[in-house]
Design a protein around this nucleic acid. Sequence first.
DNA 1: ACATAATCGAGACGGTACGTCCCGTCTTGTT
DNA 2: AACAAGACGGGACGTACCGTCTCGATTATGT
Lengths: 206, 206, 206, 206
Amino acid sequence: MKTQQTAEGVARPAGRPRSEKAEKAIVEATLDLLGDGIGVSELSIEAIAARAGVGKTTIYRRWTNKEDLVVDALASLKPPIPLSRGGSVRDDLVTYLRVIREESRHQRTRCIMNIAMTDTERHPRLAERFREIAIKPRREVVLAVLRRGIDSGELRADLDVEVAMGMLSGAIIWHVKWSDPDEEISEDLPERIVDEALKGFRPREA
Amino acid sequence: MKTQQTAEGVARPAGRPRSEKAEKAIVEATLDLLGDGIGVSELSIEAIAARAGVGKTTIYRRWTNKEDLVVDALASLKPPIPLSRGGSVRDDLVTYLRVIREESRHQRTRCIMNIAMTDTERHPRLAERFREIAIKPRREVVLAVLRRGIDSGELRADLDVEVAMGMLSGAIIWHVKWSDPDEEISEDLPERIVDEALKGFRPREA
Amino acid sequence: MKTQQTAEGVARPAGRPRSEKAEKAIVEATLDLLGDGIGVSELSIEAIAARAGVGKTTIYRRWTNKEDLVVDALASLKPPIPLSRGGSVRDDLVTYLRVIREESRHQRTRCIMNIAMTDTERHPRLAERFREIAIKPRREVVLAVLRRGIDSGELRADLDVEVAMGMLSGAIIWHVKWSDPDEEISEDLPERIVDEALKGFRPREA
Amino acid sequence: MKTQQTAEGVARPAGRPRSEKAEKAIVEATLDLLGDGIGVSELSIEAIAARAGVGKTTIYRRWTNKEDLVVDALASLKPPIPLSRGGSVRDDLVTYLRVIREESRHQRTRCIMNIAMTDTERHPRLAERFREIAIKPRREVVLAVLRRGIDSGELRADLDVEVAMGMLSGAIIWHVKWSDPDEEISEDLPERIVDEALKGFRPREA
DNA sequence: ACATAATCGAGACGGTACGTCCCGTCTTGTT
DNA sequence: AACAAGACGGGACGTACCGTCTCGATTATGT
């Protein structure tokens, strides 16, 4: 492929450059459709092209398959860093769990989450990307809170922070996903989880 | 519609009765395909019919849509009751978490689990059924163990058993699904989870 | 392929038989489009399917390529045998040339003729078929007239009927196709051609 | 539009002049492709540009559509004046028909002829141009021969030269195009045509 | 034994989306 | 201003399945 030389000395491929506008429209259309509850399998390139007002070739020129496109679309989402920090460990953890629960109640986030939980097994690259952009930042935040708690003496010095993090995140997700749909999820679930976790299941020995 | 009278006195429609063999073959073919990692969306009636050696009509005559078929197929699975009971609360919980982890390592269970985690949002009836046949029995078992622990004094009398159950189940699932694929999941993860849960995060006050 | 046995003992392929109605609709749509002046190259399977109210597969199931479809479509046209016979040789030949000229003035025939003249080189099978259904019958008719003329003494006994036929048919086509579009083609062209042909170009020797 | 002043005083548009080399390459590429048996409909600007080593814009800048380009390309062909004159009328006519038959046997001429016969209806401007550069000169030549024959007494004084010309040209073309492909076209076809035409179909009266 | 009737397999039906190819237009930096 | 390169929106290609339909053949009973 021939290239052209720009003033900045950066090689550029010859010919008309790819339209950033089109690219954005495609990603946005993808997120829109995903947000409308369309799953990765049901998501059709043709529908994306139509909604983005773009030719199919313009999509295929950039992404060789649907999975890559979805990966990039998800990646374009800013991870809405969920934690306001600075209070007590208990307050921070409660806040964190509340944010997750709130997210799971909003349409777009919910759909994105679904994809994460859902199409992840059939699309390993997607899972990897999701871990990167969604799981990892939250994980770091919780780990930081827990470590801070250990330093300040609020938490046990020998606490297994990995396990603790899994218990907190896992618990809220479990309830959101699997609790009986007839019963309301209690509003104070985050507090209850955090408190039980802090206390431990065993009775205090005299 | 004319009916026929069987010896048992049960009214039966006239004409050739439906083949039980075909029905079984269809359900089996469905589970096979699901077990091969095919998701509900990718699962095609055509493929099921082909693998079952059956005409497509024979499937559509019995189930009006794919979801209903999958529901029935999943229902036909015996819930492999996961808990050997009788030891200490700690032992029982560790055993329970181990069973879940093992299941997640075996092909067929893993795939079924994926479907549960996966296609659940797009197929609400499926989710409901899965809750019925997979979640509920496990939930009951854990709740029973926890209540027994309270009775025996091994656990706090005011323990929130729902929350505790969510923490345990959620923690193991979280780790199985979201832990860094490069790092091995530690073999003693079930023990670590149970121990941290029992102890609580907070240090013992003097 | 499995077959079924009919009462008449004629083997029939299993499954739903192909719809004759669809087949006719496809052929008719093809001729319509061709008659609208669409050439074989411009003719799209998609357009045929749309006009016939038929799925593309229904077309591809029967014809592997466009050319075969056009061949069959043309073949379905009844050759409108152009000659009323029984008069003098001169009258019959004039009638024949008139019919050709008239045909070349009517829309549908004109378009079919165009295809014959046109797409024939790029589509040899089409040419062959056209020769069969359009050229050959006309050729036979003219040859018959000429032979009758020889028998009756109206024409020379040693007349080269092949060449004579070519001169008559070729002359009318040449004029229809290549005469100056500004000048009207004279109404009595058929008579003029026949008369010149009968007389010969050379003057009568004393 | 600004213009520049050449030494010859002819106004010229400002900016880089159009490349004559490119223009020639385009026309040549077009004729090449046409000669390879590609029809006007199948002929793609993309293919022409590629073969000419030229950008598509360079073509579209000069010709607004494919037809115009083909017209110009055909126009660039020198009409290979087909008649050596000077012998008897019979000899001249035989020579003329032979030339046509030979042309129809050579690849490039054959393809050009095909285009004439072929794409003419769908592309009227092309037809007109072809009439100008290919038909008209031949027509004139034959008419001249015939008129010369009348003057010299070789032909009837009242011969309808237009009709006669059509019969001769039409006959050879008819045979070349429509004769049975299994039978060889007889080598002496030109002689046979001319002789029959000269004699007329009717027997000499005593 | 035979008519009745629902089911069976096979496969054609009208559709939708696929990923590819090429169209004619447009938008770059270079000549 | 013209050039080559190549991206753009669009339309048709031929394929793969979709869920529905229509066949003849099969398999039960009820007379």
